[in-house]
Write a protein that binds this DNA or RNA. Structure first.
Length: 442
RNA sequence: GCGGCUAUAGUUCAGUGGCAGAACGCCGGUCUGUGGAUCCGGAUGUCGUGGGUUCAAUCCCCACUAGCCGCCCCA
């Protein structure tokens, strides 16, 4: 029989790598808490309409990358006429594994009427997302994002450029605190919901005149998704692209002032960034400020560590009240890859405080009692087995723990335990009552 | 979704149309209470899966699956 494997684009995360994931997640929780964010957990699947409306029907994500299904059970029961007791909404509803989390958060914001609190909602999330793309390093079909949203009624200050700057400053602090070196921040403004159509029209017009001189991909993009032409990396295309209309020239006064205020605030607090008039995002809900943090080590083509921006019209697109907001999503898989690359490879597993080695199987029960005491006092204890020879216990202990404690007949009788520290090689006898204290130091 | 490269031991990788290899790791012994590069010994495995060619295929051919690189796109 063929053994089953993790399906394409999914993977198992094992120790010690999961220790690094814990570190990343714990750092995120710690940093976000300092900015007074709270955690939100939304469902992993949602009504397909949420993403179609929120992310955008025409985006790649929605048009070709979603895991959408209609629960077979519902369809089957309906076909068999067994649906009598069910609400109409439960019949053959199209569901989708979330490809991103912002739409879900905004849906929850609307559903729970969080805007009625009058307060700014500052919510963070972490969890798996799903997109059916060709897998590659740093790109998986189930991948993990850590993200946050700042959203609320305008009266709560949700439109303030200070919120944009604060979020960017938080991200810079997060990466610094994690020890990520060499990250770069690019920012841009894609304008308001009113600015964008005007710019797009101008861009299309300009492209119609020059598309013939661009690469094949760009000729295609000029029709399907003109903004993406700006992202083209083909050297020969660059002079033509540079001559295209700039989004900055199409911003209304309010958008222009907003962006200038974001930049001024970043300058003031020393967060370094570069303006990138070509920074374009592939999700329809973005307005005004957009940004991307990139890193060049260990990621290959997938060099975007995190991205985000403002989405002032998203709530209304989902049938909610006016609720401007800004958010971001960190590619946790990519962040972990970057940290591993910086550390020069996979980390060694961390070690237990002590390996407790019963000597002789008769000591096993007594060893469990002692292990229980030590663990209850907070120590990390690896419990061996009395059937192991002492040499084997030492070998195992040296791999797994910083110290070994021998528990043989003598020790049980005398209450004096043998403790050896592997770092120093020193060995001593310790009274059982003082053992926990003796083991808790370095 | 498109193009390219790759798939052999737990891991990193050699290799050959004719009995499957190294290093590290693992297990055991020297040593019935002492580890960290002592010494000695041992096992590593459906050579990704399924077909085909051949007297014979891990090797050549085809398909599939998966990973990586590039494209597309994104985090």
């Amino acid at each position: 029989m063929n053994t089953l494997k993790a399906v394409r684009g999914t993977r198992d995360l094992l120790p010690p790598e999961t220790e690094l994931w814990h570190h990343v997640e714990a750092t995120a929780r710690r940093v976000f808490a300092r900015y007074n964010f709270g955690e939100i957990r939304t469902p992993i699947f949602e009504d397909t309409l949420l993403f179609a409306r929120g992310v955008g029907e025409e985006t790649d994500i929605v048009s070709k990358e979603m895991y959408t299904f209609t629960p077979a059970d519902d369809v089957g029961r309906e076909a068999r006429g067994q649906d009598r007791g069910r609400a109409a909404s439960d019949k053959a509803q199209s569901l989708t594994l979330r490809p991103e989390n912002t739409a879900g958060v905004v849906r929850a914001y609307i559903e729970h009427k969080l805007g009625e609190t009058g307060l700014l909602q500052k919510l963070y999330y972490m969890g798996p997302q799903f997109r059916r793309e060709r897998p590659q390093k740093g790109r998986y079909r189930q991948f993990f994002q850590i993200g946050a949203e700042v959203i609320g009624p305008p009266s709560a200050g949700s439109e303030s450029p200070l919120r944009d700057a604060e979020v960017l400053e938080m991200l810079a602090s997060f990466l610094d605190e994690l020890g990520v070196t060499g990250w770069r921040l690019a920012i841009n403004s894609v304008g308001s919901a009113a600015d964008r159509p005007r710019y797009l029209a101008a861009l299309r017009e300009a492209l119609a005149a020059v598309a013939g001189s661009l690469c094949g991909d760009c000729q295609h993009r000029a029709h399907t998704n003109p903004l993406r032409v700006l992202d083209c990396k083909v050297p020969a295309d660059q002079p033509v692209i540079d001559a295209l209309p700039k989004i900055a020239d199409y911003l209304d006064d309010a958008s222009r002032a907003h962006f200038a205020a974001v930049c001024a605030a970043l300058d003031r607090c020393g967060v370094r960034y570069e303006l990138n008039a070509r920074l374009v995002r592939g999700i329809d809900y973005y307005t005004r400020t957009t940004f991307e943090f990139t890193h060049d080590a260990g990621l290959g083509t997938q060099n975007a560590l995190l991205g985000g921006g403002r989405y002032d019209g998203l709530s209304e697109m989902l049938g909610g009240p006016r609720a401007p907001g800004i958010g971001f999503a960190i590619g946790a898989d990519r962040l972990v890859l970057t940290l591993q690359s910086q550390a020069g490879g996979a980390a060694a597993p961390s070690k237990a405080d002590v390996f407790l080695a019963p000597v002789g199987e008769a000591q096993n029960p007594a060893a469990l009692v002692l292990a229980r005491e030590l663990r209850r006092s907070g120590l990390r204890v690896e419990l061996g087995d009395g059937s192991f020879r002492v040499k084997k216990s030492f070998e195992l202990a040296d791999k797994l723990a910083r110290r070994i404690v021998l528990l043989g007949e003598d020790e049980v009788a005398s209450g004096m335990l043998t403790v050896k520290n592997f770092a120093t090689g020193e060995q001593q006898k310790v009274v059982r009552g003082e053992l926990a204290t003796a083991l808790s130091g370095a």
